Simulated scan of single mutants.
Amino acid sequence: MAVFTPIEPSDISDWIATDFEIGQVTDVRGIQGGIENSNFFLDTELDGKAQQFVLTIFERLSAAQLPYYLELMCHLADKGIPVPKPLVDKHGQILFSLKGKPAAIVSKLPGLSRLEPQLKHCAMVGEMLAKMHLAGTDFIHTQENLRSLSWWQHTIPQILPHLSDTQKTLLTKELAAQEHFFSSANYAQLPQGASHCDLFRDNVLFDSKGASDTSQDVLGGFFDFYFAGTDKWLFDLAVTANDWCLADNKQDFNPTHLNALMEAYQSVRPLTKQEQQSWPLMLRAAALRFWISRLWDFYLPRDAQMLTPHDPRHFENMLISRKTL
């Protein structure tokens, strides 16, 4: 959630007042973190009541691709899954143009991220992720995960010149292993559907209900669906486990956190035999996907305000760890 396209209240005040029923703009502030889109907290006031939303200007996704993400959030919200819901303007639209780029406004979820999750946080996330997967089974739209195998194949040649020989070997051998896995009969049988594909700790909020500690935490919701796609649910679970269940060394698993996440997920949707067999390779696929992405952002960055690329070595080390499972 960096800022590539700065905006001021004066840029949007008339638009908001004319096309929405959320009152007058009182402030708009860039959100730090993330590296894909320009995101802002949008403050308004209606009948003396302060309200807050999230405004996103999309920097890479096209207007043709965006309805999938926005309509998926609408679908999940209507099914009772705690996700941001896109605002509909007076013309019945949820996708807009701002400064020549696609844009959307969504509701703001309550709570804060828990970057050092406890067992209960892992369990809440696992349970809700399974419920989200099942809630999406009747979502009528499909769109491939745009950061899956074909993107890896396209991107790796661009980043190889920046890597050491050891890194090149690790990356190319793992890509070959994943190409074989993705073409296997086991992979073809894995259940799939709408998936978040980026459910890191900073994309989940917990509401403490006013408590000064985390003892009263409830799940506030999942957000940032702009890497979502139709993918294997096991990949979505692997991405989540790789981030939520880390040991202190930030690369191996904390087994108690992993058990909490997996047991809660399977209490709602038990894994199939093929999923159980594919779990080690899918954990590697999830680590590889984000290592490639971090390398791409690190060595081929875009100009942006408030942008700090993440260290790629985190997922390099994680991939090495996952290969030992």
Rank of each mutant, 00 (worst) to 15 (best):
A2Y: 06
V3H: 00
P6F: 05
I7F: 09
I7N: 06
E8W: 09
E8K: 14
D11W: 02
S13D: 03
D14C: 07
T18L: 05
D19N: 15
G23P: 03
Q24R: 14
R29M: 02
Q32I: 15
F41S: 02
L42N: 08
L46N: 06
A50R: 15
Q51N: 12
F53V: 12
V54E: 04
L55K: 02
A63T: 13
Y68N: 11
Y68M: 07
C74L: 05
D78Q: 11
I81Q: 15
P82Y: 00
I94E: 03
F96Q: 13
G100N: 04
K101W: 02
A103H: 00
I105P: 09
S107A: 12
L109P: 00
P110D: 02
P110L: 03
L112P: 00
E116H: 14
E116R: 12
P117S: 08
Q118M: 07
M124I: 08
V125E: 04
G126L: 01
M132P: 01
L134P: 01
A135H: 03
T142L: 04
Q143D: 02
N145W: 08
L146Q: 13
L146N: 08
R147C: 12
S148H: 05
Q153D: 13
H154F: 07
P157S: 00
P161T: 09
D165H: 07
T166Q: 15
T166L: 07
Q167K: 09
H180C: 04
S184E: 10
S184L: 06
Y187L: 04
H196D: 08
L199Q: 07
R201S: 07
D202G: 03
D202M: 01
N203L: 06
V204L: 04
V204E: 05
G210Y: 01
T214L: 15
S215C: 11
S215L: 10
T230F: 05
L234N: 11
L237F: 14
A238N: 12
A241E: 06
N242E: 00
D243H: 08
W244C: 05
Q251P: 09
H257N: 09
L258H: 03
L261G: 05
A264Q: 10
Y265C: 01
K273A: 12
Q277T: 15
W279Q: 08
L281P: 01
A287W: 13
R289G: 05
L300A: 12
L300W: 14
A304G: 14
Q305M: 13
H310N: 04
P312A: 08
R313S: 14
H314I: 11
M318K: 14
L325S: 13
L325A: 13
